[in-house]
Design a protein around this nucleic acid. Sequence first.
DNA 1: GAGCACTGC
Length: 715
Amino acid sequence: RAARPSVLSAVRERPFLIVTGETGSGKSTQLPKYLFEAGLAKHGAIGVTQPRRVATISVAQRVAEEMGCLLGSVVGYQVRFDDCTTEDTAIKYMTDGCLLRQILADPLLSKYSIIILDEAHERSLSTDILFGLLKKLFLQKKPPNRKTAMKVVVMSATLEVDKLSEFFGHCSVLHIPGRSYPVKEIYCNLLSPRDIGSSAYAVKVTLDIHLNEPEGDILVFLTGQIEIERACDLLFKKAESIDYRYEVHDQSVEGLLILPLYGSMSTDQQKRIFLPAPTGIRKCVVSTNIAATSLTIDGVRYVVDSGFVKQLNHNPRVGLDILEVVPISKSEARQRAGRAGRTSSGKSYRLYSREFWEQCMPDHTVPEIRRTSLTSVILTLKCLSVHDVIRFPYLDCPEERHILEALKELYQCNAIDRRGHVTRLGEFLVQFPLPPNLTCAVIKAASLDCEDLLLPIAAMLSVENVFIRPGDPQKQKEAELQHQELSSQVGGCNDFATLLNIFEQCKSPSAWCQKYWIHWRALKSAFSVEKQLREIISKLKQLPDFPKEAFEGSRTEILRRCLCAGYFINVARRSAARTFCTMDGHGSIVYIHPSSTLYNQETRLEWIIFHDVTVTSKIYVRTVCPVRYEWVKDLLPRLHQINAYELSSVAREEVTEEEITKWKHKEDLKRQYGEFHKKMERRNDDQSILDARARYLERKQQRAQGLSGPVKEIG
DNA sequence: GAGCACTGC
């Protein structure tokens, strides 16, 4: 409240303002209110973005309550599938991805007078793109249909503020002091380097806290479901054997309530962590990173931080995503520690040494824009007339080869032309909340008037895995048999068709889902996605230039041919008994994943297309479908027709055909001399896959050894 | 004969 006058004058004077403050300073709820009360929303709404849906809705609810109005009137929110706003909404909370969609429809954001980007320090992909777009929007002359110039406020935890301020033309920075409590940081003395971040060591430290520290709940951060469940089992066994009459120093703590927490748990199971523990019982939540930002648990006084996280990294050279266990950054460690200081002072136990902190942990997490495939993002930018996608004002530039790869893929699916301009198909593709290649298949189907085949598949592929895999081996077998049954009902040789079959058969959370071991929550969201996709496609089909084709063939053949239209980039040919070689220029050797219905049928196949790749003990392709050579042969040349550098030269600036020819000649020369370098680069990337594989095998071995590692006995 | 951290449109 004290900051109110300075916030108002800063926003009035300059186009950009940065506001920093720890969580709990109330900036998300209070600041938009101040701006509204000061009359700054007269010529357009105040839009506030958040990276997550749940946070968006709950902040909007709180502000509506505080202002004594109905949610959806003056204060409203918009997230995917849920628009709770009216014409009169003056303070509109929304997810950052939602605002990005709105920019596509209205590039000047003429409905808004102020845009507030909240949680900017999280550096979500959408927020990063919005940074650049809003900066560009300001640099343009004030458009005639805007009454006042756009104002932009960026709200962030205290983090890389100088960089952010410089990015927005050295704008002013206001700090709002928070009300969080001090958290003492404790580095653990390790018995051996293998202990760093291990579940076994986390269990030991947790029990030490439980037996020696005054009341207050414990939050343990581990990397994944398996690690969490193993730690919970061991904690339970150890905690059970404690004789509290002799062991506990603080008499008020008599037992330990152990609760696992990770994203794939059902919502009901997740809710348990919010219930307060019975008197005298200490709650201990063992969680993935989900508890670092997405879920807040009150009453935590002790954090146990493994120092690691599972991170999805994209490798553009081989075109693969690899899920890796990596050390967290220092700022992420501070974020985790902060979870102990929300209601009183707390302690954070770090399962690593000071030395590890200083030498192995980076200052900041690499932002998503530098770690992810950029195909959709680049298409969005191109559709917003950002032709030069390399020199777009990024707060952090993506690696050039990530951009090149994205351009190449967009060219391959005919979303952009040889000169890097968006095609009509590209304009269709950008409308969909799906990866462009999958959308190609959907559009192909719609042009044949049989989108009913592809929409459910597209929806199923964009939600979490619908197949349940229970931990118990007996049940696992049972589940596998049922999944096989679902596949053989539609011929047993096409994983995409199996997804369609599931979507069509199940319409309610009946016994059906239980019988077939299908995840109802995932299926339900697939229904919502399908509905949304259907709405988009029916709008597009009304356009006069939407493609129309005719084709005679069986249902399964049409389905497979539509899939080819999108997935010809992911085509592979059998090269040895059980291996396939991709045709995308990387020529990777891949295996069919054992979860596929085509696993063990490799010798009967020659050409296949697949949805995605996972690198674990081998390079596996998942969700597979056999195709005929005739269906892809006309499409294959497109994979090699163009050199990505050619597209990039176009990306840098507008060039003439003549210049392209010149450039191509240079490119030929470069290619001759570059062969050696390319080979080396290739080898390095192969090495990175081998490294990932070695790390995976090592982890697996550690897992197999179970908890035989050095666990110091308690008492 | 297999592993899936977390978001978002």
